[in-house]
Amino acid sequence: MNRRLMDRSFYWFCKSMTWMALGILLILIFHICRQGCEYLDWQFLSSLPSRSPEKAGIKTALAGTVWIICFTALFAIPFGIATALYLEEYAPKRHPFVRLLQINIANLAGMPSIIYGLLGLTIFVRSLGFERSILAGSLTLALLILPVIVIASQEAIKAVPDSIRFAAYAMGARRYQVVLGQVLPSAIPGIMTGIILSISRAIGETAPLIIVGAMSYIAYTPESIFDMFTVLPVQIYNWAGRPKEEFHAIAAAGIMVLLLLLLSLNFIAVTIRSRYQRYK
């Protein structure tokens, strides 16, 4: 009797926790949408920032975010996957240096993002002289998400059954053929999950970019990676702190744009993932 009761209550506990979390999220999204929907239109997407709420738009921030995210992905993904492949397929697991590396990567994944901002400021902005550019910003964010990509990719590669490797070797494949032709494609769905999560994190980051030098007002869209930039979270934060009430609604509209961008990026990633899953 007691065990049956436990069984039922544990089930209800888990279920209610799930729905509660989901409910809060829905209330939040609903609130944001109700506040922001009246401002969310084409004019909002295509206008420059302004002091008057009717004219204010998000064009520069949206463009900045797209640039930053593209280059962050470009920098982080090759490094992340190559590192994971090396650690899983080539590196001697018990070697003290490799273990040290492993511990460090795990630690880096949990580091507060502001520290990456300071790192980016010292190395990219000052030492390498990239100044407050998209290049400096996206390199900083790439560092930030690199550990997450490495760890997720490692897990995905670990999950590839050895039988696949042995079969490939038995056919006379070289090691690079095994890794690139068999292991990597089978691991892609897991790797994509890691990439989706880390890019989503990068898109919402404000603190490191403010340190690296994201602008608060900028009236032109970037044309090269050496241009100055602003990003959606910085612009939203800027609006949310304004005295005029209308700007709070505009901030909500900005949040909606950020969420939509996030959803569409995730949609692309999920599509790629499901394609590879079929291929497997």
Partner: peptide
């Protein structure tokens, strides 16, 4: 300033 000088780039940080 964008009205008289539409091509000049101004960037403001906080």
């Amino acid at each position: 300033f964008r009205n008289p000088y539409p091509r000049v780039r101004v960037a403001i940080g906080v």
